[in-house]
Design a protein around this nucleic acid. Structure first.
Lengths: 240, 240
DNA sequence: CCAAAAGTGTTAACAGTACACCCATGC
DNA sequence: GCATGGGTGTACTGTTAACACTTTTGG
């Protein structure tokens, strides 16, 4: 086994590193994911996750943080800033052969965003088109790379954690929302159904604990039934 | 912004990618972590996490999977095989400057292993020495790189998840163990204390559910008190 | 009045908590 | 016997789950 590393040089081959973004929003009682249609090989013309290379160099600044690359890609492809979303690193995906061209290791992130904060969807410079798809329609699509695996892992991770992390639900709901809207977000993300009364009891506890605030007297706009009260997350409160 | 990627070549700079291993075991009522004393720059002579470069190339096989690199490093530095441990990817650490030499992105893994499965500790070819340290003694040590951050993230991740993942506790306990031994593992990993009676009730439920098996009639060896019964995890049962 | 959606109350089952107590063994 | 650790029982409490019910709006 050869000695691999000397003091200020290296003789091992390096992989490319990318970030892949699983950007999700809830709209029309459905969980939607942002995909881009690839404008380049490989998988030209197929849908795939937005993302791109982490910009690195060896000296002196070494380029951007991997987290910064995720934030940059998010802004380039959606116009969203990190304070508008719940952004979290999922994990690295590093199977050999996952990119047929050359060795690429990808760090996957997911971003949860409320539908009313989605301003524009801009195709980046390696994307021809961008579009929101229902996550339930993905099975029939031929996505590029190992992106189906990344998406599945992200959806499972989110479904497992949203019940214990108010920030996740908060990021998927408009600034002012009704109890029913919040409940539907939980139902859509986890796939479970939540009893209205029992959910409201949890909701009321969060109000008492100061995690939620009543949005001043206003009510949701007209529909067939009784108008609902509006609430907002208390962003200055600590969770738990 | 320049076009970056053509069909079968690339013109962007690449980072090195390493795996870092947080290898933990419980011994003497303490959670211990395996560290190696670095035999090379940077941080020569300081303690750091075991790990090494992911071996990649561009064609045709592209080298080893990142997961395979973690398994290889584990075996090289501890002699442990993946079936002897609970091995899990934590996440990627990719801050610029985390390695002072050149740009290195690291994928961190943690491995939980029972003290009786630890056979030997072998220093790899870039490590001079290897030793187990109490995790509570790390604050006073000057570890290399961003390894304190990685270790903190791993310990927090494990403490948050061990209560819901029997596999983690199972990997930290010998093949046959007593209720008290298992309880102490939970206490040491989470930092909480568990009421003996209440823990036994959970334990007995796991017995009824077939997740645990009574180890035939044998008893733990001598001490001042009453000998305890021995149990084993039912590895063929599905968790939940 | 009726339909639809918001919101409340009631009950039983279950799991977690805090204890007190008994059992088996070495010395 | 007594100290030490293993093991059980009980009463209290809070949370969840299932379901029935009332309230407020538009048509």
């Amino acid at each position: 086994m050869a000695r691999r590393v000397k003091q200020h040089s290296y003789d091992h081959a390096r992989p490319s590193v990318t970030v892949d973004m699983v950007v999700l929003t809830v709209v029309d009682l459905d969980l939607k994911i942002l995909l881009i249609r690839r404008g380049e090989a490989p998988f030209l013309g197929q849908w795939a996750l937005p993302g791109g290379f982490v910009r690195v160099n060896d000296a002196p600044d070494q380029g951007e943080d991997v987290d910064a690359a995720a934030i940059r890609e998010l802004r380039e492809e959606t116009g969203l800033r990190p304070e508008d979303v719940y952004l979290h690193q999922l994990r690295a995906f590093g199977r050999a052969g996952r990119d047929p061209r050359y060795r690429v290791i990808s760090v996957a992130y997911y971003a949860l965003v409320a539908a009313d904060r989605v301003r524009r969807v801009v195709a980046g410079d390696d994307a021809a088109e961008a579009e929101w798809f229902s996550t339930s329609s993905l099975e029939t699509m031929a996505l590029g790379f190992d992106h189906p695996e990344i998406i599945d892992a992200a959806l499972e991770h989110i479904a497992d954690r949203i019940d214990g992390d108010f920030g996740m639900a908060a990021s998927l709901v408009p600034a002012a929302f009704t109890k029913a809207e919040l409940r539907r977000v939980y139902e859509i993300v986890t796939g479970q159904s939540y009893d209205k009364s029992n959910f409201n009891k949890r909701f009321n506890r969060m109000l008492e604990d100061g995690l939620l605030l009543e949005s001043p007297g206003r009510r949701a706009f007209a529909g067939p039934g009784r108008p609902a009260s509006l609430y907002a997350f208390n962003l200055s409160a600590d969770e738990d």
